[in-house]
Each structure stands twice: as structure tokens, then as C-alpha cells.
């Protein structure tokens, strides 16, 4: 029988259906309420985090574009301005 520590270590593989220990983990989950809650919470975390998209606001497209044009000029490539 797997221990809780072992289940915690491979819980993501279990959720991603990426472990040969699937049945052993299921057997453990049948008997262990703590690990059931742990795996359930991990699944919720994975699912909601995937829906939260952040940080794009920090992209300054103008600056990146200007730097790109400057670099191209430096390399003496024909630019598009």
C-alpha cells in the first residue's frame, strides 16, 4: 500500500493520467480521506489556475517594436518604417 507521502509526491501524475501507479493510488484514496481531499484540492488548483491569465499588462509592445527596429537597422537590414 502506498503511503500518504508517496501519494502526495505523485498526485499531479495521477491527475494528468501519467502514472503506472493509478490503481494503487485509487486504492489508497478509497481508504484515506486526507489524501482524497489533497488530490481534490490539487485538481481544483490546477483547473482554476489554468483559467487565470495574468501579467500580459506589463508588455510594452511599442518599446519592444522600437528596439526590434533599432536592432534591424544596426544589422543593416531593410526595415519597414
Amino acid at each position: 500500500m502506498l503511503s500518504c507521502k508517496q501519494v502526495a509526491a505523485v498526485a499531479s501524475d495521477y491527475l494528468d493520467n501519467n502514472t503506472p501507479l493509478k490503481w494503487q493510488i485509487r486504492l489508497h484514496l478509497l481508504m484515506c480521506a486526507n489524501c482524497r481531499r489533497f488530490v481534490r484540492h490539487l485538481k481544483i488548483t490546477r483547473d482554476i489556475s489554468a483559467k487565470i491569465v495574468g501579467e500580459d499588462a506589463s508588455v510594452n509592445t511599442d518599446v519592444i517594436w522600437k528596439n526590434l527596429q533599432a536592432q534591424l537597422k544596426k544589422e543593416k537590414l531593410p526595415d519597414r518604417e
Partner: peptide, 22 residues
């Protein structure tokens, strides 16, 4: 490792969440 006993069981219960609905 501090979360587990020597036998591999949880040291403390996993905290309950008030809301589990994604």
C-alpha cells in the same frame, strides 16, 4: 518531510476549504 510522520502518513489533517466550487 515535516508534513509527514515517520510512517508516511500526514502529520496534520489536510485543511478543509469553505468553497470547493471552481
Amino acid at each position: 518531510g515535516a508534513h509527514f510522520k515517520a510512517d508516511g502518513h500526514w502529520q496534520q489533517p489536510i485543511p478543509q476549504w469553505n468553497t470547493e466550487s471552481p
